[in-house]
Design a protein around this nucleic acid. Structure first.
Lengths: 152, 152
DNA sequence: TTGCTTCCCGTTGACGCCCATAGTGCCCCA
DNA sequence: TGGGGCACTATGGGCGTCAACGGGAAGCAA
């Protein structure tokens, strides 16, 4: 398995460290990531974390934009400047910097959420709220398309 | 037979484990699932459980969406983040995590329900209530479509 | 020094592996 | 045809391993 799946919540210790779930660490290794890169999400208080290929995806998107327009410049600024490297220590822990705390609201616990090609880190209660909102939107989507039916 | 059929209810032991019905286990083996993946159902307090091919269909669906829109993000969040691995121990048991208990209301017993390509787990009394509601809807549907006819 | 990071080690609790037992259905053979 | 025994499932529990976690100590920079 080489996708980030499922979720887990771990505690931050007195030194500001938190264990990355073992399953995620093995995915990181299988994918051959030597470094982890964390990006502030635009519309939610979470960070996207993955290898440097996380950037490729955004860069492709930027390439589609007209380089004379402000949008391309904004996007470039966002992904290249608004990120941080996360160093895994040899016990598989990362240090939660103020940069991350500010954006996510994380204080004492970190929720890790698999997203397939990458994973996210959240403040647990905010994650719960976001999860509920997502489920509500998807439910509405389903009922809008096929009332009463469940997609198989 | 390689479909999940019928249903059964088993007890959770003091360590939080429950036996997967033997028939389901043989289906799991025939289908070659090395791991089971459980997904929270959107509209009912149950989990869909199957192999990782459960995700394939959803991922194909996501691929059709614009990856920079919210819908794609929601869908990915739901299938990748709102799931959990169920590891079968060598006696064919799984451990019921809090993640599952929260969504299903399961406490001491688990009802397994075959659904063909996958199966579901329920809290037994909620399953009974849901079953009754489903039958009522189907009955109403039939009477609505074919007035004057008697259901068999 | 002071503060911060990295390496290393010990503890603890959860989980997987293993074995044991009880209940049940099935088969075989007298 | 009925009884005994085999096979298998569900369930309980002991025990070892490993991940998460806490903290000491060394290295490094201001």
């Amino acid at each position: 398995m080489d996708r980030f799946l499922s979720s887990a919540t771990n505690r931050i210790d007195s030194k500001g460290r938190v264990s990355v779930p073992a399953h995620f660490r093995s995915v990181v290794q299988k994918r051959g990531y030597s470094e982890l890169y964390a990006l502030r999400c635009l519309d939610v208080p979470a960070m996207d974390v993955g290898g440097l290929d996380l950037l490729d995806r955004y860069e492709e998107r930027i390439a589609q934009e007209d380089p004379f327009l402000q949008t391309a410049d904004d996007m470039s600024f966002f992904i290249h400047g608004d990120g941080a490297f996360l160093k895994l220590d040899q016990d598989g822990r990362i240090t939660v910097s103020d940069f991350i705390r500010e954006h996510t609201g994380i204080t004492s616990e970190v929720a890790f959420v698999g997203r397939g090609q990458f994973f996210q880190i959240w403040e647990p209660s905010r994650l719960a709220a976001h999860g509920a909102a997502v489920r509500a939107r998807l439910l509405q989507l389903r009922q809008g398309t096929k009332p009463g039916e469940r997609p198989e």
